[in-house]
Amino acid sequence: MTAKIAVVYYSATGSVHALAKALADAAAAAGADVRLRRAAELAPDSSIDENPLWRSHTDATASIPEAAIDDLAWADAFAFGTPSRFGAPAAQLKQFLDQAGGLWHEGGLADKPVTAFTSAYNRHGGSEATILSLSNVFYHWGALIVPPGFTDPTVYAAGGNPYGTSAVTGPSGEVPDDAAPAAAAYQGRRLVAITDRLLAGRDITADAPRDGGTPATRAA
C-alpha cells in the first residue's frame, strides 16, 4: 500500500516553503503519494506589500494549492510547517488546524503519524517551543508524533533539533545553506518509513479476531 502524505505549511518569505519542498520531494522519492499544500494567507495585501521578500514569495507560490480539510482526510500521515511567531505557530497554519474539528470528532485524525518543522530569525527564536505548541494539537487528535530525534547525522548538521527540523534565517528570510533542507528531507523519509510500517501492520491485522471474537461478532 502506497503511503499518502499531506505536507501542509505556511511560509511568508520562503524559508518554511524550502523545508516543505525538501520534505515533500524526499517523501515522494521514498515512494509516497504526496500532496504539498499551503495554508491560506490571512494578512492583507497592504501588510505583504510592506515587505518585498514577503510579496515576492507570495506571488511565486500562488500556484501551490491551498490546504483543505479533505487533504487531511485523504492522508495516511501529515507533516506541518510554520515559521515561529513568538514561540507559537503562525496564525495562518493555526487557522487551518482550527477547521479540523469536524474531522477530529469523526476520528479521522487519530492514529495517523505526524511530524513538524519550523524556522525562526534567531537560533533561539522559539523553534522548539513552536513545534511543542503544535504537538499539543496532535495530542488532542490522537495522532502519532514522529520526531526526527537524534537518529541521523543530518539532524546534527542542521543544528541538532530532535523535535523537528528548524532553520535559522537571519535578516535574509531565506534558508542560508543546505543543512536544514537535508534534515527536512530525512524527516520526510523517516515519516514515510514509519507510515509504511503502520500500513503494513494494518493490512496484516485488519481482519484478525481480537479478544477471542471474530470480525463478524465485532461488527455486531
Results as ranks from 00 to 15, higher is better:
1 M>R: 13
1 M>F: 01
6 A>N: 04
10 Y>M: 12
11 S>Y: 01
14 G>E: 08
18 A>K: 13
20 A>D: 10
21 K>C: 09
21 K>L: 15
27 A>C: 07
28 A>T: 14
29 A>E: 15
32 A>K: 06
34 V>I: 08
34 V>D: 03
38 R>D: 02
40 A>T: 14
40 A>V: 12
40 A>N: 02
43 A>Y: 03
45 D>T: 10
46 S>L: 06
46 S>P: 00
48 I>T: 13
51 N>P: 01
51 N>T: 13
57 H>V: 10
59 D>Q: 15
59 D>P: 00
59 D>K: 15
61 T>E: 13
66 E>R: 09
66 E>S: 12
69 I>E: 15
72 L>I: 12
75 A>E: 08
75 A>L: 06
76 D>T: 08
77 A>I: 05
78 F>P: 04
79 A>N: 05
87 G>D: 11
89 P>S: 13
92 Q>C: 08
92 Q>I: 12
93 L>E: 09
96 F>M: 14
100 A>G: 00
101 G>L: 08
102 G>K: 09
104 W>N: 14
104 W>G: 11
105 H>A: 15
106 E>R: 14
109 L>Y: 01
111 D>C: 07
112 K>Q: 05
113 P>Y: 04
120 A>N: 03
120 A>R: 06
120 A>M: 02
122 N>G: 00
123 R>N: 12
124 H>E: 15
125 G>F: 01
132 L>C: 09
134 L>P: 09
137 V>Y: 15
139 Y>L: 14
140 H>Q: 14
141 W>K: 06
145 I>N: 02
146 V>F: 07
147 P>G: 03
154 T>D: 11
155 V>H: 05
155 V>P: 01
161 N>P: 01
164 G>H: 11
167 A>E: 06
172 S>I: 07
172 S>V: 08
179 A>D: 12
181 P>S: 07
182 A>W: 05
183 A>L: 06
185 A>P: 10
188 G>Y: 02
191 L>C: 07
192 V>Q: 08
194 I>T: 11
194 I>N: 04
195 T>W: 04
195 T>C: 08
200 A>H: 05
202 R>W: 02
202 R>N: 05
203 D>S: 14
203 D>A: 15
204 I>M: 04
205 T>G: 02
205 T>S: 14
205 T>R: 07
208 A>V: 14
210 R>F: 02
213 G>M: 13
220 A>I: 00
